Amino acid sequence: MELFTPETSSEEIKRLQERLQEFGYYQGEFTNTLDGATQEALTNFQEANGLAADGTVGLMTLNALGLLELGITDVG
């Protein structure tokens, strides 16, 4: 299940970008959008962590990033 799409713009995306930066995968500005730089960082994170490297944010990716425990489960 994909929770974020390329058109998504939200505070949850900013949290995703912050977390990817904490893990050393994202160096861009926090844009609150799932842009190309964010998707590239996401794909690299997924690949390095044995997840499907598809650039989409599903529950397994959120869990690996520790975002489920922060309460991010939907971008509603």
Rank of each mutant, 00 (worst) to 15 (best):
M1W: 13
E2F: 15
F4H: 03
F4M: 13
P6Y: 10
T8F: 05
S9Y: 09
S9F: 03
S9K: 08
S10A: 05
S10L: 08
E12W: 14
R15G: 08
R15A: 09
L16Y: 13
L20D: 00
L20C: 05
G24R: 06
Y25G: 00
Y25V: 00
G28Q: 00
E29Q: 13
E29L: 09
T31C: 01
T33I: 14
T33H: 06
L34G: 08
L34S: 09
D35F: 00
G36K: 03
G36M: 05
G36A: 08
A37N: 14
T38G: 06
Q39D: 08
Q39V: 14
Q39R: 15
E40I: 10
T43R: 14
F45G: 07
Q46F: 11
E47S: 11
E47P: 02
E47H: 11
A48H: 11
A48C: 04
N49I: 04
N49P: 07
N49Q: 09
N49R: 09
G50I: 03
G50H: 02
L51D: 06
A53T: 13
D54W: 12
D54Y: 07
D54L: 13
D54N: 12
G55E: 00
T56C: 06
G58A: 06
L59H: 10
L59A: 12
N63I: 08
N63K: 10
A64P: 07
L65K: 06
L65H: 04
L67N: 02
E69S: 13
E69C: 05
L70D: 15
G76W: 11
G76F: 11
